[in-house]
Amino acid sequence: MDRREFLRQVAGWSAGALLASPLFQITPELMAAERPLPKVAIGTGGDITAFVQRVLAPLGGMKAFVKPGNRVVVKPNIGWDRRPEQAADTNPEVVKAVVSLALAAGAKEVLVFDNTCNEERRCYHQSGIKPVLEGMKNVRCDYIDKRKFVPVDISKGKSIHKWLFYRDALEADCYINVPVAKHHSLARLTIGLKNIMGVIGGYRGEIHQNIGQNLADLNTVIRPAVTIVDATRILLRNGPQGGSLRDVKVLNTILASPDVVAADAVATTLFGLKPAEIPATRAAAAMGLGEMNLARIQLIRV
């Protein structure tokens, strides 16, 4: 092989490697015409681990979602450099409870992460989530690795058709959505559907220009096995990051549902709002991602 041939081959190979970016094709799930009413379990108070367990019980418990040997992603909201009592991030005790229940159900490994808005080390520590998971076996609370964002075609998207998603979230055997319920000036509220912002990359600011439909589109790609809404403390004003304890209301409430839209719809009522007032809930329900009509949701109080 002479030099010219060598250079030609190098050029050819590297071009091939560059062009062959990984592509995840998400097949549209079957849309059943007749669906059973989605269940939402809701409860208040008590020791958090037992409490989360109690809320999950009517849905079949954690074992209904996590199978032995599964690689589980627990996705809290760790977006902001705020302390737990400021209610801008998911309550670390709730995260810990969900992680331990997933491990108890036989998960091989549990990954906890979020693409943060403030500096990631500050968010992970200040939120209390990284410290609370410290020392737990088979649990990884790593910072986002920018190399793991892969482009995904959003075939069902109405407003966005391609975006970068985090590979660990796409590859999870079981994806557990653990949002905190809080006020948001543009999206009105941020709960389960908006929590997907933490597994996407790219210029996330652009999502806000048509936020309801964009969030619904993103939610066609990743469908949580179960959404566990942390409403132990909710942020009523100055969301999504708050900062003042005056804006926080202690509810000691947790609710859970396999249907993220139904979970959001019920959580919305905690703020005295109607599900249809939240653009993302409306758009997601219109796309058939779940049920937002409270009359058609089977609410189980525990």
Binding site: G205, N238, G242
Partner: peptide, 25 residues
Amino acid sequence: LPYANGIPCMVCEEHCPTSKKAILF
């Protein structure tokens, strides 16, 4: 964007860290 193009955008407000936000609508 909201001024120049009439497009909703609130990224600055969302990130404003003061507990009474220094950016309002």
